[in-house]
């Protein structure tokens, strides 16, 4: 579903990813773990198309299409969703307006009918209830004044609403207390499906207790240095990343 080959990415002339290769088939959840500065967030941003992230070499195909041929919003419409580690505040734009604009923009690009206001509100209301989000909060400008946990719940609400084919979760567990982590993880798990892939970027094993991965990859200094099953996450938790730092250098 998502196939990354020999990807090298520079940010502000600094090489961050150095020949990263990775395949995530449909229906699987892969975790990327690694120390600070390894390039975990860079991978997410590069896939989503953040400006100033320069693709030096390599290729990414998403459902058989060249991902880098597409603009940022086209990647979203094609089904790629990046959940931000620090979701941005959008002053002056009520969350509901933002959500409906995004959903209809994607539908329009895919040649689908736009969702009507009543259908949209019904759907949002259901999702908000599941995610324990107050409808009043959705009338406020998106993420403005929201707590860390509220912002992450909003991220999950957006992914559930937009129904992307592939999710990249960038440090989704950061800033969450135990209860919020459970709500967010349940929301993500509800989206697991045979036709949907996920890439879970995290520092810690903790999130993977809730969102169980099929494969775990260790990212150090811009490269995948080891891949394995779920047990690899436990091993990393016990022994740390030190053993890989020497190898990468």
């Amino acid at each position: 579903m998502l196939s990354i080959k020999d990807l090298s990415v520079a940010v502000d002339a600094k090489q961050i990813l150095k020949g990263l290769s990775l395949d995530v088939p449909a229906g699987e959840v892969h975790a990327i773990m690694g120390p600070n500065g390894a390039g975990k967030s860079t991978l997410g941003y590069a896939l989503a198309g953040r400006p100033n992230y320069q693709i030096k070499s390599g290729s990414v195909t998403f459902n058989g299409e060249d991902l880098f041929e597409k603009d940022v919003h086209e990647r979203a419409a094609a089904g790629l969703y990046l959940s931000f580690q620090y979701p941005l505040e959008i002053p002056g734009v009520p969350a509901l307006t933002f959500l409906r604009t995004a959903l209809n923009a994607q539908k329009k690009l895919r040649g689908e009918d736009e969702i009507s206001a009543p259908d949209f509100l019904k759907r949002v209301r259901e999702l908000a209830k599941t995610l324990k989000i107050d409808m009043d909060m959705l009338k406020r400008p998106l993420n403005v004044g929201f707590s860390g946990g509220e912002k992450k719940r909003m991220e999950v609400l957006q992914m559930a609403l937009l129904e992307p084919k592939f999710l990249i979760l960038d440090e989704t567990d950061s800033g969450l207390d135990i209860d919020a982590l459970k709500v967010v993880s349940d929301g993500v798990n509800a989206l697991r499906a045979p036709d949907r892939g996920m890439l879970v970027i995290t520092h810690y094993q903790r999130l993977l207790d809730h969102i169980k991965p099929d494969r775990v990859h260790v990212l150090v200094a811009g490269r995948i240095v080891r891949s394995g099953g779920p047990e690899l996450a436990l091993e990393l938790e016990a022994h740390g990343y030190d053993q890989y730092l020497g190898e990468a250098a």
């Binding site: 198309g49 919003h73 979203a76 979701p87 959008i90 002053p91 734009v93 604009t101 995004a102």
Partner: peptide
């Protein structure tokens, strides 16, 4: 904020319009 809005599927021009208007 522009990138965030675009990454959710809103085209650049519409995102710029939305954020400028919202300002």
């Amino acid at each position: 904020a522009m990138f965030f809005a675009m990454s959710r599927g809103i085209p650049e021009e519409a995102a710029r319009a939305m954020l400028t208007h919202a300002f």
